[in-house]
């Protein structure tokens, strides 16, 4: 059976982000995935914690699709983490209910691949910049997958953007059908 994938999407300016519009339309209609548009769901930041937790429980792989803002997530997704991944659910007594589920960040990044290096002005490779996500997943007993990133989204051509979206789509389909949840390897 295919793995159940939840995509928690967060973009406060989705209406004017070409990159994310292309990315979203590439995966939104995939069969068997749940697309959860957080800014559309909670424009007033009033997150329904119970509902979000139930969504997590009924999926195997949680994808966080968002632009990388200040080496982190848009504020609503941060709010989501603060409230939904609470003690007694994601960790702590009677917690760890997300244990062994997979966590993937799918990010759009303004800088180039080269800028995310010791020589670049972003100083650290992307995986290092995004360590807080990794540690959050690990803390909750979840398995952290290597981020899927599209770099330089403001400059690349429309064709390249579409290519990137297509490979994002393939990436998700791969997770859906070929990731062995027990071993973490592709079949």
């Amino acid at each position: 059976m295919a793995n159940r994938i939840l995509i928690n999407f967060a973009h406060p300016r989705f209406e004017s982000s070409v990159a994310n519009q292309v990315m979203v339309s590439a995966i939104k209609d995939l069969e068997g995935i749940t697309f959860n548009d957080l800014y559309e769901e909670y424009p007033d930041y009033l997150i329904d914690v119970k509902k979000e937790q139930e969504l997590l429980l009924s999926h195997d792989i949680i994808v966080f699709q968002h632009p990388l803002y200040w080496y982190s997530a848009p504020s609503l997704l941060k709010e989501w983490q603060d409230l939904v991944l609470e003690a007694g659910f994601a960790y702590g007594d009677k917690g760890y209910l997300l244990e062994n589920k997979y966590w993937l960040n799918a990010v759009t990044v303004g800088g180039t691949y080269e800028s995310y290096s010791e020589q670049g002005y972003n100083q650290f490779p992307l995986e290092v910049s995004m360590k807080p996500f990794e540690q959050t997943a690990t803390f909750c007993g979840m398995k952290y997958l290597k981020p899927f990133a599209v770099y330089d989204v403001f400059r690349i051509s429309k064709e390249k953007m579409i290519d990137a979206a297509e490979s994002y789509r393939k990436h998700i389909i791969g997770l859906q059908n070929h990731l062995d949840l027990v071993t973490g390897s592709y079949t």
Binding site: R13, S16, P67, G110, T112, S115, Y121, F154
Partner: peptide, 19 residues
């Protein structure tokens, strides 16, 4: 503003250029 912000605000290279 918000439309323009999308083009530039998170554009780290722009920051580099201005630097």
């Amino acid at each position: 503003d918000r439309a323009e912000m999308q083009d530039h605000a998170w554009d780290s290279d722009l920051r580099k250029e201005s630097q």
